[in-house]
Design a protein around this nucleic acid. Structure first.
Lengths: 319, 319
DNA sequence: TCTTCACATGCAAACGTTTGCATGTCAGTG
DNA sequence: CACTGACATGCAAACGTTTGCATGTGAAGA
């Protein structure tokens, strides 16, 4: 691990000034093409790579964005990570991923830690209070995903419209009693989904019972199946696919057939696997949402706009 | 986003030298306790936070480690990311995650990009050639996970022993014909697993057919079910749980019952969900593996040791 | 009372870039 | 042939730390 060559090394070997080398990389058009070529050639020969720390120090730009999520094992966030990283790559950035477990204090702590290294932060379904977010936005650029807080640039992956369609479909197929298995409370997604379910159910004259799966785990979904079976509903809408799969498994164990006895609709469409029968769901355009978020960050748009990215109903075998 | 206070601001307000402030943070014991207290208090009051870029420039330490993986949506890597980040956190580091899709060139490109920012790299199931790795190790610290290359510090999450047990269990239950559904070729894990299956099968006098699922996706697993059914085997061992679940679904569609007609054993135990019947598998200690890797990096142990982390057989309902 | 030394702190260089300004050259114009 | 500019490049300061060395202080020992 010999120490790498610096801009000065390259400059000396060529008998030019360090600034010339710097410009050959950052501002080649103001140099004589021949000079640029010589510098680049020599740099390649020596294996010169700019020192990002030094660059960051002078320019204030570190080339890093932070992505703050709740749970890496949730497939939703897998898609989020991939999209974020891909877009960052396109913008010559690197992404640093932080998992913070639905715990606001931990989230704050971890954010404080990455803060000094990043140019900006994408917060997915953050648990931070409005006050803390405002404070945060004074220290760095912030873009919110799936949090609808006025004044912030925010991207919302909306399931509302597709869910509406889905419920009408269920009602059309004869469903009268509905259960909604809710996910993490206080999240924008939960509020939007539960709100939509309640509203549309009311419009269509469907009864709806609420069952909770606060942590959003598979196990909770399976446990929820018991109360669902007791409630003798015709259809279930779940907060997301992980929960939906839990419900599916739970119902199967109890001898309830899906979709014959009960129809089931999930949300996200992010699972790396399928089950049998294949789950009907709302496919969210998570990629689009995070790509948009990263772009907004990079552009430095502190515009505070509210961007909605709609999902689409994907009917498979459980409805 | 007013520009944050620097060490010099703090120093001036207190009438001390910048170096004193620096020492109050990094080397408090050589200062008068009272001074330390005053500095810390004033720093807190001003909201002073050390500039990591400047620190990185002088010390050469960026506080960042890179984690290079193949596929974020694979649950194996979800556990890897979590463990890495947690351990990094404990060591006051941040982790930067890079997904590179089983593509050596892309991997090289992305590594080159993060290289200047990180103190070291954890490469999980890398696709890089030995030559490239050697070259890489001259430029930064490298720890390998699930690649067994002599000379490098490497951590191996081994399924061998547990797989051996599992196959003996299958044989004991009367299995005579085995299928192995292989994952990404050229990976150490694949070599170890397939090697173990073949060896143990031979020892027990079992016939074994190889079916491939090169990309390691659910869909390939499901497709593989067809050839499995044709081969009329008694038991299937799959490279990992994602594939195993695909196989399970595929077999179910074909009317083959698991475990009655065919027994099924997966590997990893990382899925955020379960299916019905619950999958028997080898639970790998992925956390332990990555925690070890990060520690080795942080300690700067270029010792080149080979660390084996064994998995345990977890019998559930498919065997 | 003078010397010695430990201890606490200050000074200034260094880390590797970027960038505003100064300088030098040369072609084109009058 | 002198003058103006455009153009290419050099010079040096700045970014915010860390750290080896120098300095100043006061207490302990002689």
């Amino acid at each position: 691990m010999a120490k790498p060559p610096t801009i000065v090394d390259v400059a000396h070997m060529l008998g030019v000034a360090p600034s010339t080398v710097s410009r050959a990389f950052n501002n080649p058009r103001i140099l004589k093409p021949d000079t640029v070529a010589r510098v680049l050639a020599k740099a390649a020969e020596l294996g010169y790579v700019p020192n990002r720390h030094a660059q960051a120090l002078t320019t204030g730009r570190s080339g890093l964005v932070g992505l703050v999520i709740r749970d890496v094992s949730n497939p939703f966030f897998a898609r989020a990570i991939r999209a974020t990283q891909r877009e960052a790559e396109r913008l010559s950035l690197n992404a640093i991923v932080v998992e913070c477990d639905s715990d606001a204090d931990r989230e704050q702590r971890l954010i404080d830690r990455v803060l000094p290294q990043v140019e900006g932060l994408v917060l997915a379904s953050t648990r931070l209070s409005a006050a803390r977010l405002t404070e945060l936005s004074r220290r760095t650029r912030v873009v919110l995903v799936n949090s609808d807080l006025a004044g912030f640039t925010r991207v919302l992956a909306s399931a509302s419209e597709a869910l509406d369609q889905g419920i009408r479909l269920l009602a059309g197929a004869g469903a009268r009693k509905l259960a909604y298995v809710g996910g993490p409370p206080y999240s924008w997604s939960e509020a939007e989904r539960w709100g939509t379910v309640r509203r549309v159910a009311a419009e269509r004259g469907l009864a709806v019972t609420y069952v909770s799966a606060n942590m959003g785990t598979y196990g909770e979904g399976r446990a929820a199946a018991v109360s669902i079976a007791e409630a003798e509903v015709d259809a279930v809408v779940a907060f997301d696919d992980v929960i939906a799969h839990g419900v599916l498994d739970g119902l199967t164990i109890l001898g309830v057939r899906v979709p014959e006895d009960v129809r089931l609709l999930g949300c996200d469409d992010a699972l790396p696997i399928e089950t049998h029968p294949r789950l009907s769901t709302v496919r969210l355009d998570i990629e689009q949402a995070f790509v948009t978020a990263v772009r907004a960050l990079a552009e430095g748009s502190v515009s505070g706009q509210r961007i909605l990215v709609p999902g689409v109903l994907t009917v498979r075998e459980t409805t």
